[in-house]
Nucleic acid binder design. Structure first.
Length: 669
RNA sequence: GCGCCCGUAGCUCAGCAGGAUAGAGCAUCGGUCUUCUAAACCGAGGGUCGCUGGUUCGAGUCCAGCCGGGCGCGCCA
């Protein structure tokens, strides 16, 4: 809503500057729009007078006065004032603004991206999901919702590494430690929390390898066998990966997270994506066969370096700059992890000229279909949507993979795809570790000498907070709170459960989003279980309070949303102009209108904490309003109705903001 | 050694396409429920924005160099 006003003001100011000072319209400084610290000073502020002071050799104050004098009427603007220090302050036509805000939301622009792919979650399918995975998924899913909010079509992919060491290790565990047959594992996998069983087994395998390193030969053989479909090992691997993925999907469903496509690494191998990527890389000279030195026999990709070594500098010794290169194909002919990833990235961007087959994996809670890649045509279903071939790709992966993600961009550049490289975005974020208190609570012995503020999660050691355990505890805590507040709810009833679930989801999703992504989270269980202060439930609570007010108005006056909006059309605007409580109501309405700007900024900076902070700030402002400006009890009708409008609009925007974070507003709490 | 990230109140963090008086949550202390739900609100205390220099009318925000911390840099995945 507010971005439209920015654009109108900016464009008008630019026109005026050109006229006033005979400036070249291409060389105008950016007309920055900001917000005065207090609504009584104005709604929008323009600082361009400061920028021009030097060029024009004129005091900012005089320039501001010139601008204000020349500006003339702007649609939606009530008046403009020059501040004594040089700001140009703009006051909006408040009544008109509110009436428009409560109308339909204009279609978003879409910003020239035909289709974006967001890859997130991508948990190794060999054990239960933990809190670190929740950060990834919460960031990824919020990114998806924001992009769609801005009008960009998005395809959500979840990459499954079903042929890696992690799955291999669990296979070894079932075979050699638990000594179970395929059928026995299949039966076990039908029982609840198979992922928890594998979590424990995985740590046992790790210890088992440590006891006797010779056993690592079993891992190597298993890893090899996993790639051969006919092998019984591969069948066991498939079974485990498939069942664990179902567990992960169920966990993510509790977070309101769904996907469009599961991409299996096994399919990338079987369909020989790599061999096609290799052709492209080789033909374009992006990789070369090393004939001498330690990398002899390998296909390598030279790494970017600002100063390539001189040709005739002789053999590179200690002193000289060493040209580095990354091995893509090993001397034994097998492809490295980077190579597989390059092939996958090429496919996402439609530069591979090869495709998967697809089968329907299932239907998700929302009714949306989930597809899965497959490598055989016989089980392939008919996909309604074409997958891949995006013109922007967002890979949500933690910062430890930054080097690898950089290599992907470099490979694209090297094959002459600079545009695709630019639109390959690594959405990086710091890891989730454990606070010392939480690590201790999990039974982990801390070294008393090492006073580190966090303990790294380790799947191998089984050290971590499992996602479902956390969600269970959150739900239980929320249920207790709700039952304490509402006598009519039965302890095990569906309504209490639904409310508790919504609160738990909001609590964890908000928690995972509120830190900026470059910040390491030292996850503390007690902190995460808090529903007070800056938290998801705080934001939900504000929206629920708004609902209560509107319900009371309806019950007493028969005033529903439509009737309220209709009444505003011919209501005098004076209560909104009142410098006391009118400023509170207007300030709330104005802040609520900033969602479009906030969404835009979140995507521009890929900083989703901006959205979370906005949600909290708006909820805070609503609570201030709530305590200062009674609605139902207000006797003056215009004042009451404008306040009701503030409540209605604030609830609408809070609901939208929560929805962008994958959170719902419960009917009560 | 090179690259990326972090350093703001006792703790955890916002603020960074420069702009008006540096904010919030938690914790501490003191208030507010016969009122639209106290998961809330009001108030108090608490800051050399790591250090030094630079750019600018203006720097927590941009640049450079330091200091401290984290992560990454394999013919592993």
């Amino acid at each position: 809503m507010i971005l439209g006003m920015h654009a109108a003001v900016r464009s008008r100011v630019r026109d005026v500057l050109v006229d006033l000072y005979d400036l070249d319209s291409n060389r105008l400084p950016d007309v920055a729009i900001q917000y005065p610290p207090d609504r009584s000073m104005g709604d929008l502020g323009v600082t361009v007078a400061f920028e021009l002071a030097r060029v024009l050799r004129k005091a900012p104050r005089a320039i501001a006065a010139d601008i204000v004098g020349a500006l003339g009427p702007i649609e939606g603007v009530d008046r403009v004032e020059p501040a004594p220090n040089g700001y140009v302050n703009i006051f909006l036509d408040r009544a008109r603004f509110v009436r428009e805000a409560l109308g339909p939301r204009p279609a978003p622009a879409g910003r020239g991206i035909r289709k974006a792919i967001v890859e997130h979650t991508a948990i190794n399918p060999n054990k239960a999901a933990h809190v670190g995975h929740l950060r990834n998924a919460a960031l990824g899913d919020t990114l998806v919702r924001l992009l769609r909010f801005l009008g960009i079509p998005v395809e959500i992919q979840n990459y499954i590494d079903d042929t890696g060491v992690q799955v291999a290790d669990v296979v070894v565990g079932f075979r050699h430690i638990e000594q179970l047959s395929l059928e026995e594992v299949a039966a076990l996998s039908e029982r609840p929390r198979f992922d928890y069983h594998c979590w424990d087994l995985y740590t046992r395998v790790t210890a088992w390898f440590e006891d006797d390193p010779d056993r690592l030969a079993l891992r190597a053989r298993t890893l090899h066998d996993l790639e051969n479909d006919a092998d019984p090992t591969a069948q066991l691997g498939h079974l485990i990966a498939d069942r664990i993925v179902r567990c992960h999907l169920a966990t993510m469903d509790r977070m309101n997270i769904e996907y469009d496509l599961l991409t299996w690494e096994g399919d990338i191998l079987r369909l020989r994506f790599w061999s096609r990527a290799f052709e492209v890389l080789q033909q374009t000279g992006a990789i070369r066969l090393e004939t001498t030195g330690p990398q002899a026999g390998c296909w390598v990709m030279p790494l970017d370096s600002d100063t390539p070594p001189p040709v005739d500098a002789g053999p590179a010794d200690e002193g000289g700059p060493k040209s580095k290169s990354k091995v893509i194909v090993r001397s034994n002919g097998t492809v490295t992890y980077v190579g597989k990833d390059i092939a996958y990235q090429f496919w996402k961007l439609g530069v591979l000229e090869r495709d998967f087959h697809y089968r329907l994996h299932g239907t998700q809670r929302s009714g949306h279909a989930l597809w899965s890649t497959t490598s055989t045509t016989e089980e392939a279903g008919r996909s309604q949507a074409a997958f891949g071939k995006a013109d922007a790709v967002y890979n949500v992966i933690d910062t430890r993979q930054a080097y690898l993600q950089q290599l992907l961009k470099q490979a694209l550049t090297a094959v002459g795809r600079a545009r695709e490289a630019e639109r390959s975005v690594h959405v990086s974020y710091e890891m989730v570790a454990l606070s010392p208190a939480t690590a201790r609570a999990l039974g982990h012995d801390l070294d008393p000498d090492a006073e580190r503020p966090f303990v790294e999660v380790s799947g191998r050691k089984g050290l971590g907070v499992k996602a479902d355990d956390l969600l269970d505890r959150l739900t239980e805590a929320a249920r207790r709170e709700v039952l304490a507040r509402h006598d009519d709810l039965s302890a095990d009833g569906a309504e209490a459960h639904a409310i508790a679930t919504a609160i738990a989801t909001a609590a964890i999703r908000y928690f995972m989003i509120k830190y900026s992504r470059g910040k390491l989270i030292a996850f503390d269980i007690d902190e995460a279980l808090s529903f007070e202060g800056e938290s998801g439930p705080y934001v939900q609570y504000a929206a629920v309070r708004a609902t209560n007010i509107l319900r009371k108005l309806y019950d007493r006056d028969g005033l529903d949303d439509g009737a309220l909006v209709a009444a505003l059309a011919k209501l005098p605007a004076t209560p909104l102009e009142d410098p006391g409580d009118g400023t509170v109501a207007w300030g709330l309405l104005f802040e609520a209108a900033r969602l479009d700007e906030v969404a835009d900024q979140s995507i521009r900076a890929l900083e989703l904490s901006v959205l979370a902070k906005y949600a909290f700030g708006l909820a805070q402002m609503f609570n201030t309003f709530y305590h200062r400006c009674p609605v139902v009890a207000e006797e003056d009708e215009p004042t009451r109705l404008w306040r009701a409008a503030a409540v209605l609009y604030c609830r609408l925007q809070l609901t939208r903001t929560l929805a962008l974070m994958g959170c719902e507003v419960p009917p009560r709490m």
